Amino acid sequence: MTEPDAGSADEPTEDADEPAVRRAREEVIEAMARAAEVYGIKPSYGRLYGLLYFADEPLSLDRLADESDYAKSTVSTATSAMERYHFVHRRSIPGEGKKAYYEAETDLWHVFQQLLNQEVRSEVRIMTRALDEAAETLRDADSERAERDLQKVEKLQGVYEKADRALTVLTSSSLDRITDLFGRLRSGE
């Protein structure tokens, strides 16, 4: 009995799977573009992220422009924004000079943690500082209005204190640990 050839009808070849693979990949990339819109981000950002996500190697701006059919300026703007939010990383390739290459961050929990650490924690710091100063001013004032406003400010202080604690847990724990914790909370353990 002989072994079937690598390209026999019994075993699909990579080429035979290509149209199906391309369709599946495109479906996910289009979903990423639509998902970007949900967050008020241009769909081009989601599409470019998707192209990088499925790329086997870092891609240059030129290659991303070719593969996406977007202008190089659009690709440059998008990759800069995605880099700021940790969705992509800029890489240099030896022998390519200063030419920039990009690759997707595939650990989306890491991206989420970075966004929480940078953007949300920044908001918490700004608000905490303002609320502390306002509370001090209102405590020194002697009026009914100041007392009512102080109660509102103290309520907000409580919210931001809890938010800060939640941020600490979310940014210092793995996704598995967080989901395990939520699972135990739901089941009442």
Rank of each mutant, 00 (worst) to 15 (best):
E119H: 09
E119W: 06
E119M: 06
R121M: 12
S122M: 08
S122Q: 12
S122Y: 07
S122W: 11
E123S: 03
E123T: 06
E123A: 10
E123L: 07
E123P: 01
V124L: 14
R125G: 01
R125T: 07
R125C: 00
M127N: 12
M127K: 14
M127L: 12
M127P: 01
T128I: 04
T128Y: 03
T128G: 08
T128E: 03
R129L: 13
R129V: 10
A130W: 09
A130K: 12
A130P: 00
L131D: 06
D132Y: 03
D132I: 05
E133P: 02
E133G: 10
E133F: 04
E133H: 12
A134M: 12
A135Q: 13
A135L: 04
A135I: 15
A135H: 13
E136I: 07
E136H: 13
E136T: 10
T137P: 00
T137S: 15
T137V: 10
T137Q: 10
L138G: 04
L138H: 10
R139I: 07
R139F: 02
R139C: 01
R139H: 02
D140Y: 02
D140N: 11
D142M: 00
D142G: 08
S143K: 05
S143N: 03
S143Q: 08
E144G: 13
E144H: 09
E144V: 09
E144K: 11
R145A: 04
R145P: 00
R145Q: 03
R145W: 09
A146H: 00
E147S: 07
E147K: 13
R148M: 08
R148H: 08
D149I: 13
D149K: 14
L150P: 01
Q151N: 05
Q151T: 02
Q151A: 09
Q151S: 07
Q151E: 09
